[in-house]
Amino acid sequence: MSLLTISASPHVHGDNSTKKIMWGVVYAMIPALLVSVYYFGLDALRVVFIAVAASVFFEWLIQKYLIKGANTIMDGSAIITGILLAFNVPSNLPWWIIILGALVAIGMGKMSYGGLGKNPFNPALVGRVFMLISFPVQMTSWPKAQPIIDGITDAVTGPTALGIMKEGLDAGKTVSELMPEIPSNMQLLIGNMGGSMGEVSAIAIILGGLYMCWKKIITWEIPISILLTVFVFSKIFCFIDPEHYVSPIFHLLTGGMLLGAIFMATDMVSSPMTRYGQLVYGVGIGLLTIIIRVWGAYPEGMSFAILIMNSTVPLLNNSFKPTRFGKEVKHG
């Protein structure tokens, strides 16, 4: 028998592990992935494959030759970044832009801070914003959704529903004039619209979110507070002037709102720790998103809103403490 081990309590460990959490997120993204393959065909798979492979490769490369640490690619976080990155781009994006985006996401967004757990911003969003600013044309020519069962035809590109709305309103048209041009709410829900791969099907993403809640990977606070804020805030606008401000349902179902609220804002590394902090963070994202969508230059504000709120996380962690045990309770 070897020597007895002495260590401080506790002597058992739960079955939680970083790997398990990260792979849980990967599983949660599968429904959305399947839907995007259904609508965009094999192009979707191509983009996901390139993004994941590039992300994992860059993480391995940087970890091995720059950080000189243990191999971390198997913890799955690079895979998540890759998939999220792919979900945020049009499925017809040239491969070299994807690789460049993955390099920025992993290299600048994550590894430059010291790797998993130390990045203040969501790496996938850093990559996405980089691509959006550097390659605006390629990043905004969205292929129309064509169910794979209809047979493979030449891809038709066009703006997203949000884009149509934004341009139309900017050009002085009213909501009711634009309504026929955009897909119906039902179509938005199942994902039959043009857009980036991950944002197309609301149902698939909600399914993934429920899975993560069930597995206790995420808590309800962040997604619910974002969606609720967006709903309330845009409802106010819509109530004041329904001809110039579009309905809240439209805001919720388009432009990666759900993808952002469920998969990107909830990224544990770059979101606050305490419940109240998370609620404030979610409300902040919701407000900023609508502000950018309504008054900003871009039709879509989710990524910028999340990145801006990411930067406030240390402050939120400091300001909002958990409910401490031991408050005075009156008793008789």
Binding site: L3, L4, T5, I6, S7, A8
Partner: peptide
């Protein structure tokens, strides 16, 4: 050594 310590690398702890 008669036992093996497994914990954080701090004498104080």
């Amino acid at each position: 050594a008669k036992v093996k310590y497994d914990g954080i690398s701090s004498c104080a702890a």
